[in-house]
Every structure is written in C-alpha cells, then in structure tokens.
Design a protein around this nucleic acid. Structure first.
Lengths: 234, 234
DNA sequence: GTCCTCCTGTGGTCCAACCACACTGTAGGC
DNA sequence: GCCTACAGTGTGGTTGGACCACAGGAGGAC
C-alpha cells in the first residue's frame, strides 16, 4: 500500500468514526505528517485526492476559514470524474443525456408537492421570465439551478448529486449547442413555458405528468440542438 | 489557478483533442514537469488525482506495462467518492439503495433480450448455483458481477458505471448486513431463485416484469438485513 | 545458444527550504 | 482611550534535490 493511501485510510477512518465531521478542520499538513510518520508530500497527495472528491477544501492563511476543512460536495467529484471519462470517449454524451432524463424524470415524479425546494424553483423561474438583460449564459445558469432544485425536491441526495454532476459533465457541450439553435429567443420562450408546466404538475401532485414533461423537455432540447439520442460521439 | 490544476488542464486537453487515448502512455513525470515548466511534485499531484478518478494507472519499472498509462474506470472514481461522502454522513445509505433500485430496475426494463452480457450473467448464475464450496464472500462477489452484467445489458455505460459505484460504496455495509440475516442458506436460495426469474423475464423481453422483480429483489434483501427504506443513518 | 550481470528509465518517498497569504497581537501615534 | 501600522505566527503552495525499489533490456561470460 502506498504511503498516501495510508493517509487516506486514516482520514476516512476518522470520518467514519465521527471524529471528523463536516465543518471540522484537519490537522495541519506538517502536524499530520509527523503524527502518521510520513512525509508532508504524501499527506499533501492524500489531501489533493480528497479535495478532488469534494470532501475537503484547502484554504491558506490563518483564521477560522483557513486550513483544510471538511466539506461535502459530491457533485463536484462526480462531475469532474464524468467529464474526464467523457473526454476519453468511454462515456458517450448520449448516455449522459439518457441518464439525466432517467434521473430527472424519476425525481419529478417523486417530488413532494409541498417541498420547500419548489419555492426556490419558482423563484428561479421568475428570474428567468425577466427577458430583459438576461444573456444566454445567465439564462442557462438559472436553468441549471432550476433543474437542480426540482431534482432536490424528491429528497434523495444521491439522485440530486448525480443529476447535478451529469449536467456539469456536459456543461461545455451544452454551451456549444446553443450556437446550433436556429432561434434562441424562440427556444428560450418554449423552455420557459415547459418549466412552468413542469412545476405546475409537480405542485398539483401529478407526478406521472411531471415526469413525462421533464423527459420531453430535456430530450427536446438536445434534439433541437442536434444532439439526438442516436449520436454516440461528442 | 494552482500549479497542479494547470497540469490537469493540460492532460484533459490532450484527452479531449485525442492526442492521448486509452492505452496510451503519459510522458514520464520528470519529462512532463520540464515540458510544463513546473515541479515534479505538482505533476505528481495531478497524476494522483487522475489515478483516483480512474483515468490513469501508474506502474513502476520499465517495459510496455510500466509508466503512467491512460485507462478508463469510471466506476472506481464514483465508487470511492460516494463511499467517502457516505462516511461524512451527507449521503444516507437509504438514498444509495433507493438510487440503486431506480437504476437497476430501469436497466432491467431496457435490456435487450439478445444482449451478449446476458450470457455472462447466465454463466455467473450457474456459478452461484454450485452450493458446495461457496463461501458467503464468494457468493456476494458473483452477485456483484451478475448485477453489473445485467445492468450493462441495457447498453448505457453511464448507468452501468453509476450502478457499480453505488454497489461499491455500500459494499462494506452489505458485507456486515449478512451477519444480521437469520438464515443465510435460506436467503441464498431465495436470491438464486429471484436471479433466475429476473434473467428469464429479461430474456423473454418482458421488461416491465423484469424491472419489478429487480426492485423487489434489492429492496427485499436490504429490508431482510435490517436496512429498511426508513433508516437514514448507516 | 544460454545464462548472468549491469545499465537504464520508471514511479515512490522523503527532506529542506522558501513563498504568499491572512489573521493576531502589540507598539506606537494621535 | 482609540486607532493605525507593523511584526509575528501559522497555514497551504511550490520547488529542487536526493535516494530508493522495481522491471525490463543490452551486453558479456560461458
């Protein structure tokens, strides 16, 4: 077993045992190196991995926000991992889209009509309705948050994280795709209307209809942008 | 931007551009450090991250298998990330199980009856039927491979990878759970029968029935082991 | 031809040093 | 008494160098 894996195992053990929790701080790198009788280099390699996994955040300086603190951002880890494997062309973009449809339509069908996340989703929709002064990038940013809020309303943290990571993994492609659209304003209007319809269905407790609308919403967008379900290559 | 992220960006760019593909070898650490005008330490940190993501594999020595070669093992990355976040108690085990049910039942419903992966699944089932000389660990190992083969038959690499990572993330718990079972032999017999029923349904093209059987199969196991859908804590 | 040895190149590990940063306490001016 | 300026302290960030273990390949000894 390599040295940095020993450090990883130690930290994971601390997490599992509850001696280290979200918000807590890891010992300083030099201290940890001395404690575990390894070099600071190995400690740093382990911390880098945890950072890439969204488990810790390293901050320089001093004070309460400095040092290496435990966080929990599963979406970051899954997102970058998926993006890299898409880059190796071992994960087709079409599969990503299909999985996104699966997860989001399930979430829409299972979302509780009184979930607080729906209020946030409604607020985001209101923001997207302000046609004036809203660039394509701004619109898509709000769109991402709307979909994430909607997925979170189902109350399954794993599904939320995975759905967010899928979106993140193909974010680059999604941005490019907008340039393929014949008429962005028309598309944006349609997306807005579909968003409202989805939210209404969820609010009325009609999960089946919500799920169907979400699936059509996502598939429709990618097909309009030229990334049909048949294309297996980026 | 930190130095190791520069290295990461360079490698990801090489992958996206196709100048680096699965099976290819990265330049040696010292060479890469010199090329990018950074220290070897920073190069190593980047490679560590890629290794944790299942994108590369580092091998010492010389020869065709040595050096840092590009691979593609998305399951490893997602699995360890999920496991760590389960350790931080920000991803409830119940959500993992629920997501697994969602993905696997979808895959069972969508699997093509003539998919070659089903032959492998059948072979694994035959192996599990050899009751003699099969330890609990062996049985579970075959079980993992059976479920993965079944999920792969749907032809969606993302769903397969995610399903495998979910299983891996709670593998430790699953092993512990077997000790809660009142009668392992009886449970094993039931699991065998359910496996055959699932495979039969898929082979006959009855996706709906297969999906239902898979959902019942997974939920039944965890409930029998004392991890009901209601438990939100490990 | 076969075996053995040395050489080379790879990642793995460690150390020592320096930097940039952000807070903290203190000394000084007002 | 208050506020400012500054040195101090502890944090991660980065670098260069050195040495180790490992595995294959090239060459010589037989």
């Amino acid at each position: 077993m390599r040295t940095h894996q020993l450090v990883l195992a130690w930290i994971e053990d601390q997490l599992s045992a509850g001696r280290l929790a979200v918000g807590g701080r890891l010992p300083a790198e030099r201290t940890l190196a001395e404690q575990l009788k390894v070099s600071r280099t190995s400690v740093r390699e382990a911390i880098r991995i945890l950072e890439a996994m969204g488990v810790v955040r390293a901050g320089v300086g001093s004070g309460p926000d400095a040092g290496t603190v435990v966080i929990s951002d599963p979406t970051a880890a899954l997102g970058s991992a998926l993006r890299l494997h898409v880059a190796t062309q071992h994960l087709p973009v079409a599969d990503i889209v299909e999985t996104r449809v699966l997860l989001e339509s399930w979430a829409a069908g299972k979302a509780r009509p009184d979930a607080p996340e729906l209020d946030e989703a409604a607020a985001l929709l209101a923001g997207m309705d302000q046609a004036e002064g809203l660039s394509v990038g701004d619109f898509l940013a709000l769109d991402v948050r709307f979909h994430f809020a909607l997925a979170s309303a189902a109350g399954n943290a794993v599904v939320s994280a995975m759905m967010g990571s899928l979106r993140e993994a193909i974010q680059g492609y999604a941005a490019e795709l907008t340039s393929n659209l014949p008429d962005w304003d028309a598309t944006a209007s349609r997306l807005r209307a579909e968003h409202h319809a989805i939210l209404d269905a969820v609010r009325k407790g009609d999960g089946g209809r919500a799920a169907g609308l979400v699936a059509a919403h996502i598939e429709g967008y990618y097909q309009e942008a030229g990334l049909g379900a048949g294309s297996r290559e980026p």
